[in-house]
């Protein structure tokens, strides 16, 4: 019999298969942030790789999982999403499986980024990094599920998906202090950043990659990621039930 895990595996491997059959696109997208890093990192003050690399990892995962719904839009139009809704696949598995398909290649990419940065002085702790990626995965599953929900809501007007996705993604990134530290910004900006769950995830990633595991930053990051994960799954399951 099936379980949530086997269902998720079914959805995940279905999504991943076309990529594996045509791996060129995936290789190309994995190299992109390295180019970004190579052009941006020399502009940073010395020794800031330690601060910057976790942010880049978060950023690339965020870009990827916010696209979860874009593949779905096409499958809503052609009919294969409807076909999957009629199968006994558990609804959360549809959300998690699709989000994981975006996240797993990004984790491979994270490993690549770290490997490239270590010779330039980036230091990290294995245990912390693993905990960091688990927290990041929870956050990204939530965001992927929200992207899925957005695709369901904009199935008859595709432009809406892109408008909302782009409008939300950049403020979310900038207000989490991914590219530049928030501490130097004005008070209102810092207040907004405090309300952004991604800020806590980014802070947690930085301290975890440094090997500081049992800290309040980890705890807040975990809570923020779990909350976004739960919200995404709740909204996604609800939207699937109501979609007509």
């Amino acid at each position: 019999m099936t379980t949530l895990i086997t269902d998720t595996t079914t959805v995940f491997s279905r999504e991943l298969r076309p990529l594996l059959r045509d791996p060129f696109t995936i290789i190309f997208s994995m190299v992109q942030p390295l180019v970004f890093l190579g052009l941006f990192a020399p502009l940073l003050p010395d020794n800031s790789l330690q601060w910057f690399v976790p942010g880049i990892i978060v950023m690339s995962c965020l870009f990827a999982c916010s696209m979860t719904g874009s593949n779905l839009l096409f499958e809503i139009q052609t009919g294969s999403h409807e076909r999957m809704l009629v199968t006994p696949l558990r609804r959360p598995a549809l959300l998690i499986g699709r989000a994981l398909k975006e996240i797993v290649p990004m984790f491979a990419q994270a490993a690549l980024i770290v490997a490239v940065c270590v010779p330039f002085g980036f230091r990290f702790e294995w245990a912390g990094a693993v905990v960091g990626l688990i927290i990041l995965a929870a956050f990204c599953i939530g965001l992927g599920a929200l992207s899925y929900t957005l695709a369901l809501a904009s199935k008859n007007q595709e432009w809406m998906f892109w408008t909302v996705q782009q409008t939300l993604l950049f403020p979310l990134l900038l207000l989490a202090g991914v590219l530049l530290p928030i501490e130097n910004g004005p008070g209102w900006l810092q207040a907004l950043a405090k309300g952004n769950p991604l800020s806590y995830v980014v802070d947690a990633e930085r301290s975890l990659f440094n090997g500081e595991i049992f800290t309040s930053a980890t705890l807040y990051g975990l809570i923020a990621a779990a909350a976004v994960g739960a919200l995404g799954l709740w909204a996604g399951v609800r939207a699937m039930r109501r979609s007509d």
Partner: peptide, 21 residues
């Protein structure tokens, strides 16, 4: 519509459909 995803291969889709059940 088409139950099989357009970017997939037919046999793959049939197998994953079977797994779903």
């Amino acid at each position: 519509g088409n139950g099989a995803g357009h970017s997939q291969r037919g046999r793959d889709e049939l197998i994953s459909q079977g797994r779903a059940y």
